[in-house]
């Protein structure tokens, strides 16, 4: 910790160097817009003045070292941080022009519109079928069992899992392999027809084949959903995203077209991080 403090004080990492985001962090016609977002857990500030637009039907990758605030930022987008008592969020976060943090915004409905997939697959201790049917049922999205059936099947199909599980829909979700469980979680997210899917390192616990399947799926889902993915894998960010945002010590240092970020980043910190150099 002492060393970290020392680093903060060194001129190369002084805030002056990355107080404002460089690159193309703002967009026309964004799906989600955030402006001057500050987040703190008690006394500790986790995000400083984050202004970032998230494009429609695009994948944006949030990258950065551990503790840089990328997961915190992701969790602000569907108010997952509400569950943490000491967490304070300020600034503007808009979903299609609606204030995400407005009093009239129901967080439960918001989380249906902005779904989330976590690092570790977390299926409910229920059958494969019930895992996917759960959301549509509690949100009243289906009027009959036939409609629930249809939602379950199309969601599993979209998540690329249906063919593998169609003969055992009543088997427990936890009986699937890690990669299948993660796709089940994606199917569960899709089942409530979200507009945005947040993914927090969705493939970090998976083997390369399962990872490739998830990545392929992300690319297909992009046609219908806006996707924000947090990842520690540079190659994954480079493969799946159209835009990339680099976070460092709670600030968004640089945002840009993924091709540019990975071939010609403008900020030295971005360069150092993606080339694996000492910052």
């Amino acid at each position: 910790m002492q060393q970290r403090n020392k680093k903060t004080a060194s001129p190369s990492l002084s805030l002056g160097n990355f107080a404002s985001t460089i690159g193309e962090n703002l967009l026309n016609d964004a799906k989600i817009s955030t402006r001057d977002v500050n987040v703190s857990y008690g006394d500790k500030q986790a995000i400083y003045d984050a202004s970032l637009d998230i494009g429609r039907n695009q994948v944006i990758a949030l990258i950065g070292p551990s503790g840089c605030g990328k997961s915190t930022f992701l969790r602000c987008l569907n108010r997952m941080n509400d569950t943490i008592g000491i967490c304070k969020v300020s600034g503007k976060l808009m979903l299609d022009g609606e204030d995400i943090y407005a009093k009239k915004m129901d967080p439960v409905l918001l989380r249906a519109r902005v779904g989330m997939v976590f690092q570790k697959p977390n299926p409910f201790p229920k059958s494969i079928y019930d895992n996917v049917a759960y959301g549509p049922r509690i949100h009243g999205l289906a009027r009959s069992n036939a409609e629930v059936d249809e939602i379950v099947i199309t969601s599993l199909e979209k998540a690329g899992l249906f063919e593998e599980v169609k003969d055992r829909l009543n088997a427990p979700g936890t009986s699937l392999s890690g990669g299948q469980q993660q796709r089940l979680c994606i199917a569960r997210t899709i089942a409530v027809s979200p507009e945005v899917i947040l993914m927090d390192e969705p493939a970090s616990a998976l083997d390369p084949i399962a990872t490739a399947i998830i990545e392929e799926l992300i690319d297909e889902l992009r046609q219908n959903y806006t996707i924000v993915i947090v990842t520690h894998s540079m190659q994954q960010a480079a493969r799946v995203s159209q835009r990339t945002a680099y976070f460092h010590m709670g600030r968004i240092v640089e945002v840009g077209d993924t091709n540019r970020i990975f071939t010609n980043p403008r900020h030295e910190m971005t360069e150092n991080y993606i080339t694996g150099k000492f910052g």
Binding site: M234, Q235, A238, F262, T263, N264, P265, E271, I274, T275
Partner: peptide, 9 residues
Amino acid sequence: RQPAASDLR
């Protein structure tokens, strides 16, 4: 190494 940025260049 799958180099990126200046290393790739």
